[in-house]
């Protein structure tokens, strides 16, 4: 039994690390399409983890979330993003305020902070949390970092859904997911927010002729 638990948690851990790597790819790459692919990839792994946890724990409603997650995060949202990219015809590479080397170093720092801050909590834990919680937090913070460092509006969306992935994973790994109603609400929110943001990316492109958020600096003191 104990053996089983260790194997289970190791499996999840490995998936977690993989997810972290895809997030780092998000930081390290300069091609928008790659970014979206990385996102889809991570979402898939997340869904996988979700399914595994449902299987391990035997809690049925996680299957439902897994299903929705698969549909939404792996198929709909990346699809929608690809659609936008195509529609507004982005050719430029993703520009960043910070160069890649420094970005990676900062990413390392962020991961350290995530470990540091959760260290008090995880030392008492015996479930998947040991690594999953810090990694989930890292993914969240890295998503945040992406939003800060990348200039294009669409990367804001990517960063945001990355953050949400992190959260989702955190919930999953610590507490086998949130109550179903919350999860449903969460998915709904993500979907709606991505759509709204997509619409605004389109509108911004129309009005400003660019989706570079650097140009959004009219409202200032």
């Amino acid at each position: 039994m104990t053996q089983q638990i260790i194997v289970n948690s190791r499996t999840i851990d490995i998936l977690a690390v993989l997810m972290l790597i895809t997030t780092i790819i998000l930081i390290g790459t300069s091609r928008l399409r790659t970014c979206i692919w990385a996102y889809a990839c991570r979402s898939f792994m997340l869904t996988l983890a979700s399914g595994l946890i449902a299987y391990f724990s035997g809690i049925h409603h996680i299957y439902i979330t897994t299903g929705i997650s698969l549909a939404l995060k792996v198929i709909v949202i990346p699809g929608f993003l690809f659609y936008i990219v195509k529609k507004i015809n982005i050719k430029k590479e993703v520009e960043s305020y910070i160069n890649y080397t420094l970005s990676l170093i900062l990413a390392c720092g962020i991961i350290l902070i995530a470990y540091y801050s959760t260290q008090n909590i995880i030392q008492f834990e015996n479930t998947f949390m040991r690594h999953c919680l810090p990694i989930a937090l890292s993914i969240t913070l890295l998503g945040f970092f992406v939003m800060i460092s990348r200039k294009q509006a669409i990367t804001h969306i990517l960063g945001l859904i990355t953050m949400e992935d992190g959260m989702f994973f955190a919930a999953l790994s610590t507490s086998y997911g949130m109550p179903l109603i919350v999860e449903l609400g969460l998915f709904f929110d993500i979907l709606v927010s991505v759509i709204i943001m997509g619409i605004y990316v389109y509108r911004i492109k129309e009005s400003f002729d660019t989706i570079d958020t650097d140009s959004l600096r009219e409202l200032r003191e």
Binding site: S193, Y200, S207, F208, E218, L219
Partner: peptide
């Protein structure tokens, strides 16, 4: 400027 405000609003608040 409204679009700009809306964008900032949704991004910052959602984050």
């Amino acid at each position: 400027q409204h679009q700009e405000a809306a964008w900032k609003y949704i991004i910052l608040c959602t984050v």
